[in-house]
Design a protein around this nucleic acid. Structure first.
Lengths: 246, 246
DNA sequence: CTTGAAAGGTGTACGGCGTACACTCTGCGG
DNA sequence: CCGCAGAGTGTACGCCGTACACCTTTCAAG
């Protein structure tokens, strides 16, 4: 019985010479593996049991390193936010903002679950606040009033993380190859009921330079919207906008 | 035994005269009660079991009316989208868009869970597409190119529903009255580490016309951001913007 | 080297979830 | 009156997060 228990604590090797003891868990290793696992199987499939299994450990073992699942997710967010490279100094505010947002976007896009998790967390961790602080400082440092900065940040919203506020979820998996006559019928019904949507949806692949069949270019959509917002913010600032008389 | 089974199918009355048979369930009643219940207890607490309990019915009874929980949520979304009043005709495009968005916002704000549920659904229901069609038609009808309309819709994104892309969750419940010296210490630490955030966060209550202590005005933030976007869209259109050379 | 406490890992168990499946009962058109 | 489709029931399964008591390992102080 003692042997059995011990053997369960050794890694894959069956021979008991040079048993190669499995390293202990710690919060960092738990979080790092959780992030990887969420990347692989999706955050919904990430359960305490599944994660524990990755370490050949019983589920409750994780609770020595994270308080509960909420704490795990919070720690995962902190982990990936730490991957955002720091901003470069000496840029004009608009370049600084754009650069920072794109850096965040690149980092967080590696983890498709980040948007849902970040947005569903209500309490902000220090890592989050640090990023937001660096972001806010850009505006104030460029001479923006606290008032305008406040509203600008609200307007940019989740885009500070590089998130798009998606409307159509284009990344969805397509329906698996319906027979052509059914597809044609669907298209016809669509054209009848949703002529405007159809006109718009089929517009973008018509550009001669674009690869045919390609849907929307996320990056382009993102930059388009961000430019709109920054244009507006710049103009409000030049006009000396203030919210005082509201 | 027969009596027992029967009695369980009668409403509150104990006397068995004029037994007042409980009306049968149907999809509409299930969805309507689900919406109410989600409003009351939050969508996370809305479970098949809890909802069934509302009807004094066994959980599996619901499955005669909805395919599964996903279908339930989808139906709930359709139900509240149906509450959005139709647009009024004959407005200039910008007024039409603003009016439509505010109508959606008013309708959906009555259901705080709507944002999370709508955004986490990947497949669009007919009600969703109908709304989007009416929205798209405004732009095309005003002479926007399909190209610009496409990108404009992406830029507006979730704001077509009146959603704000929140950054700070101001609606969170405050920490329950810490001792004042702890609060002061926290404030001091905050001021040290997050000076910019603090400056911005405390800026808005300083307006002389605002009620002191009031946080951000959601409605104002929303309109501010929407104006920014519509300004930009209007300008792109006036400039004959096109995405061709990208 | 011994020891003892802190920290890491185990095992069992509970209550909750969505829902599959087989059933009983009800209402209604013939 | 019958029979049948559809409504509602009851039981059960496999997941989930995690409380609690326990055992084992580690490591610094004696």
């Amino acid at each position: 019985m003692y042997r059995v228990y011990l053997s369960s604590r050794y890694a894959g090797t069956v021979s008991d010479e040079t048993p190669e003891r499995r390293p202990r868990l710690n919060r960092e290793r738990v979080l790092a593996r959780a992030v990887e696992l969420a990347d692989e199987i999706g955050v919904d499939a990430l359960t305490m049991r599944r994660l524990a299994h990755e370490f050949d450990v019983v589920p409750m073992a994780l609770y020595k390193h994270v308080a509960n699942k909420e704490d795990l997710l919070e720690g995962m967010v902190d982990t990936i936010i730490a991957e955002i490279p720091p901003g470069v100094a000496g840029l004009a505010w608009r370049e600084a903002v754009t650069q920072r947002i794109h850096a965040a976007r690149r980092a967080l896009q590696r983890h498709p679950w980040s948007r849902a998790v970040i947005e569903s967390r209500t309490t902000k961790t220090m890592a989050v606040l640090d990023y937001l602080e660096s972001f806010t400082a850009i505006f104030l440092g460029a001479g923006f009033s606290a008032d305008l900065t406040h509203h600008a940040l609200h307007a940019i919203g989740g885009r500070v993380w590089g998130f798009t506020q998606e409307l159509f979820d284009d990344s969805s998996t397509e329906a698996p190859a319906l027979p052509p006559e059914v597809q044609a019928a669907q298209f016809e019904a669509m054209a009848q009921r949703y002529p405007s949507i159809l006109a718009v949806a089929t517009a973008s692949p018509h550009d001669e330079t674009t690869i045919v069949g390609r849907g929307c270019d996320d990056e382009f959509e993102f930059d388009f919207a961000l430019d709109l917002l920054l244009d507006g913010i710049e103009k409000r600032r030049a006009d000396g906008w203030t919210s005082a008389r509201r």
